Amino acid sequence: MSDLYSRTDLFSEFDRLQRQMESLFGGLPSSLRSSRFGAFPQINIGTTDDSIEIVVFAPGVDVGGLDVAIERGLLTISGERKPAQGVAGDGTRTYAQERFTGTFRRAIELPQNADPDKVQARYTNGCLSISVGKRESSRPKSITVQ
């Protein structure tokens, strides 16, 4: 069994294969009710009576490099997370890497009652919070019975 590990760096091959698979399937849109396991950044989506609340967990991402856009009911979040400083340099072979580095793009299909003119986004402590307002016509209304 030791011959298998000495001939090739098995862990780096698995890492290379995983990166290729992520680049192949990385840009597919997901809806509010589905997500890809292991996608970066991870996303939580919720709703209130007035808005759709999205929290994007993206530590280590430069806020200046984040791009948030809404087009035809699709919210896209893209950016880049660079390698952490202080990582060992030349001569070090990586056999496991759990921290994602590189460019990313996530797409979320918004419901029809989302109002693209009422969007707010803020980045605090590694979390991008996006609030998308709902259209006035879709909000619950109280009806008085006479």
Score class of each variant (00 low, 15 high):
residue 44 N to I: 06
residue 40 F to L: 02
residue 29 P to D: 11
residue 29 P to C: 01
residue 38 G to A: 00
residue 28 L to G: 10
residue 26 G to Y: 06
residue 71 E to F: 03
residue 28 L to K: 03
residue 31 S to G: 15
residue 6 S to D: 15
residue 22 E to D: 07
residue 20 Q to H: 15
residue 61 V to H: 06
residue 41 P to K: 02
residue 54 I to G: 00
residue 15 D to E: 11
residue 40 F to S: 00
residue 39 A to H: 00
residue 16 R to W: 10
residue 26 G to D: 06
residue 54 I to L: 07
residue 34 S to Q: 09
residue 69 A to C: 04
residue 28 L to F: 12
residue 39 A to G: 03
residue 71 E to C: 05
residue 24 L to P: 05
residue 46 G to E: 12
residue 5 Y to G: 15
residue 40 F to T: 04
residue 70 I to R: 05
residue 19 R to C: 00
residue 70 I to G: 03
residue 46 G to Q: 02
residue 14 F to N: 08
residue 51 S to L: 01
residue 34 S to T: 12
residue 56 V to H: 08
residue 64 G to Q: 06
residue 66 L to R: 06
residue 64 G to L: 09
residue 7 R to D: 08
residue 10 L to T: 13
residue 68 V to A: 14
residue 28 L to A: 08
residue 42 Q to R: 06
residue 38 G to N: 03
residue 57 F to N: 13
residue 33 R to N: 15
residue 52 I to A: 04
residue 7 R to L: 13
residue 31 S to R: 12
residue 9 D to W: 04
residue 14 F to A: 14
residue 26 G to H: 02
residue 15 D to K: 03
residue 61 V to A: 09
residue 71 E to P: 03
residue 44 N to A: 07
residue 37 F to S: 04
residue 71 E to G: 05
residue 39 A to N: 03
residue 65 G to M: 07
residue 8 T to E: 13
residue 72 R to I: 01
residue 10 L to D: 09
residue 63 V to L: 01
residue 30 S to I: 09
residue 10 L to G: 03
residue 49 D to Q: 15
residue 4 L to V: 14
residue 56 V to Q: 04
